[in-house]
Amino acid sequence: MSEVPLPYRVTRVRPETADTVSVALAPAGEESLAPFMPGQFAMVYAFGVGEIPVSVSGIGDHELEHTVRSVGAVSAALCALRPGGRIGLRGPFGTGWELGRAAGRDLLVVAGGIGLAPLRPLVTAALAAPHAYGRLNLLVGARTPDDLPYAGQVHAWSASHGPPYCQVTVDRPAPAWRGRVGVVTTLLNGAAFAPGNTTAFVCGPEVMIRVTARELVHRGLAPHRIRVSLERNMRCATGHCGHCQLGGVLLCRDGPVIGWDRAESLLSAREL
């Protein structure tokens, strides 16, 4: 349903970082939204406050999860939700990661901070079909160790011998940090993938996406094999409000996941 939010009930709340919360949601009534694909988003409605676009960070049989960072009125209201609370959802909207088109290829998942949220269901889906894909690499960067979402799961992945072959780096270490320090692209040398047979999935701050995608092209990935998830202001998610324009792209309709072949020029012009 795209017109009116469908009521959903908060089933669980899990703090991720100081300003970020994951909220698990189940339909409040009989009706539920159509199934979401990894990379798609919902318009999440906080009653009396407003509505924002949020990618799904978890897809269950009867549950959806959204990970929200408190940066404005609506996201603050969502972060303050408690189990049993009610919100509205519209969706699913937008393009997904299209994992199916990477069958047989190495997967390189690169996340910056909360950019891991929309990638998480992709990793879950790839892990559920281990024979469908080549090596699954997960590279995660965060500002500080405390800004790493899903820290328990990510650290468990890094400690295991994969898949996913997970590496973590931070920009600014804390005293107890024993891991890598530096931007996320510094992890590429430690990742095993065949550039000619790899599909990359990248989400994070725009500067991180730009730097990562350019580095991957430099290493031999075809631009259209680099899928990036972008973000703009969004009011309707149905292609009618005009806010999510990025050049000729309407991100709610043609995105949020687009190929780097299309995104490169759009992210290279200032203030586009």
């Binding site: 009116v4 939010p5 469908l6 009521p7 409040a28 409605y45 009653f47 009396g48 049993g84 609370g85 009610r86 919100i87 509205g88």
Partner: peptide, 11 residues
């Protein structure tokens, strides 16, 4: 949208 006393939403 309306919020009932038990917190339920209807839109």
């Amino acid at each position: 949208a309306d919020r009932r006393a038990d917190g339920r939403l209807s839109v």
